[in-house]
């Protein structure tokens, strides 16, 4: 008997394909481990207290990224202050108010489109619209407004997802005992969707921290500490990524790797936060 049920046929193609699958996975994971390992290996040596806590000084010939850290914080906080309310508002409109139809489809299509536009286009638009037409020049505020549009789809979609998971019973229950719509949204829907909203904010922070092309021509490359707390937003301010790009251009790779290491640690922390929150949401 050639084709007995007891005797397993050896399929060469199967083995080949399975090997391909394993090789691909090893490549994907290997690349990640390689990237993190190499950046950590090259970056750790340039990280010192001076690197993290001073501003670059041409006179003393020292290099520090404190100014860039402060600029990054400015941009994160200001962009999110503008983008979060708008994003949540849009998500609420889409899930609670709008009737399914052309308008919803239009908004969802434009949100998808915004998510697909590459950051260099945002950079060009920000420079032409906020920078030239609104006369903000290259300033932190100009960069923030540009990034606001960029993270908007992320916030809208993530918030929308979490609003959709709020059970219908909560809504009908609240309306049934006499709450008005806004009262229901304020006291029941939003608190229930909180983990999702926080996830959206954290994801946006990650996107802003890693952004470079959209900021190069909008926020500029300044690295000084703010002299006035509020006036600083009208000054040029480069984030960590921009400073890293400038260092690379100059051929100063040690400090560039130092910044890369800081960036990867930030991304890592953000990933852990999102993981914890999404787990909470699922159990929730």
């Amino acid at each position: 008997m050639k084709d007995s049920i007891c005797k397993k046929q050896v399929r060469v193609l199967d083995g080949f394909l399975i090997t391909l699958i394993y090789i691909s996975t090893i490549i994907s994971v290997g690349i990640l481990i390689g990237i993190i390992g190499y950046v950590a290996f090259r970056g750790v040596s340039s990280i010192s207290w001076e690197f993290l806590s001073t501003v670059t000084s041409e006179i003393r010939g020292t290099f520090g990224i404190l100014g860039n850290i402060v600029n990054t914080l400015y941009i994160i906080v200001l962009s999110l202050l503008i983008a979060t309310p708008i994003g949540i508002g849009a998500a609420i409109y889409l899930t609670e108010y709008a009737k399914p139809g052309k308008i919803v489809r239009l908004i969802e299509f434009t949100t998808e489109t915004l998510a697909g536009i590459p950051s260099i286009i945002y950079g060009l638009f920000g420079m032409a619209f906020f920078g030239v037409s609104l006369k903000l020049g290259t300033s932190i505020l100009c960069g923030c407004l540009t990034l606001t549009i960029m993270v908007l789809p992320l916030i809208i979609r993530t918030t929308q997802e979490s609003l959709k998971t709020v059970p219908l019973g909560y809504r009908t229950g609240a309306l049934g005992i006499g709450a008005t719509k806004w009262y229901m949204i304020r006291t029941i829907i939003l608190p229930s969707a909180m983990p999702g909203i926080v996830t959206a904010i954290i994801l946006s922070v990650g996107r802003i921290v890693g952004e470079s092309a959209a900021l190069l021509f909008t926020a500029g490359a300044g690295y000084y500490l703010p002299r006035h707390f509020f006036n600083h937003i009208f000054k040029s301010g480069g984030t960590l990524t921009i400073q890293m790009y400038l260092n690379m251009e100059r051929g100063d790779f040690n400090n560039a790797f130092g910044i890369a290491f800081v960036l990867i640690i930030i991304v890592f922390v953000i990933n852990i936060f999102t993981k914890v929150l999404t787990n909470k949401m699922r159990k929730g």
Binding site: G206, G210, M244, L263
Partner: peptide
Amino acid sequence: LAGIPSIV
């Protein structure tokens, strides 16, 4: 891998 900034 998705979160690593493009500049890196």
